[in-house]
Amino acid sequence: MASDMRLPVLRKAVSVSSAGSDRADHKDLVVPGDVITSDPGFMRGHGTYIDEEKLTASVAGEVERVDKLICVRPIKTRFNGEVGDVVVGRITEVQQKRWKVETNSRLDSVLLLSSVNLPGGELRRRSAEDELTMRDYLQEGDLISAEVQSVFSDGALLLHTRSLKYGKLGQGVLVQISPALIKRQKTHFHNLPCGASIILGNNGFVWLYPTPGQQEEEAGGFYTSLEPVSLADREVISRLRNCLLALAAHKVLLYDTSILYCYESSLPHQVKDILKPEVMEEIIMLTHHKLMEQES
């Protein structure tokens, strides 16, 4: 039995090495109301507005210039989905012919009955029976991985799970972090060498689960195994979870390499100690160093 009580300490952000601070100087940081440019040749993107022919920022963040398009990306925001994004979401409502999914965006996302893979093959037509038994497939509280099919005019997302790699999620751990910390990559499904698998949802929901064995891969879709997960796998997953929270707390971009380096740096410590402030700082410093080395 252990209880870790302490007095709070004024904490400074983890200081980055000199290479990192150079990079920080190149960044153009703006706050709401800052004029970015008065040049009429630029187009305005997200996070900006036109005020008396001057392009002004409306959020606090970094200015991104892509050719003639200027937008400002805030450091923390709800998920703004784009077509093709991989998301992990939780079912909040079962409605007629569709499910409402919570994906940390400004409106709940929609998953249509016609957009899911039903057991029994892909090409089956949706019958009236399917409507009545929607809860047998997905009920409130279930987690799914899906892809964004399209975006409605008011910003709500339309999801689909029409591929064997998407679908209902089984046993594992969900970690919720800010969407801005997930790096966009070619693939968001990784089988990490340390012994667990991870789905990095673009919406900030990260799903950790034990790597499925060969037979289970064939089932796909909606089969969830309720067999107890082995202790070794559990430890790996718990350690990964704490590492993710440590990385998120120090605003480090998350992708498979940074997570792996963090995992390796945390091995000398006990799993439950990782979230202690001083241990977190040490692990993040080591992770930074490894990432810098890999750069150069």
Partner: peptide, 22 residues
């Protein structure tokens, strides 16, 4: 199952407290 094996999701055992600041 994790609690049954005394390994909770964040790595604590069944009678451990989280980090506390007072």
């Amino acid at each position: 199952h994790g609690i049954r094996d005394d390994l909770r999701v964040d790595g604590r055992s069944c009678e451990d407290y989280r980090h506390m600041e007072i």
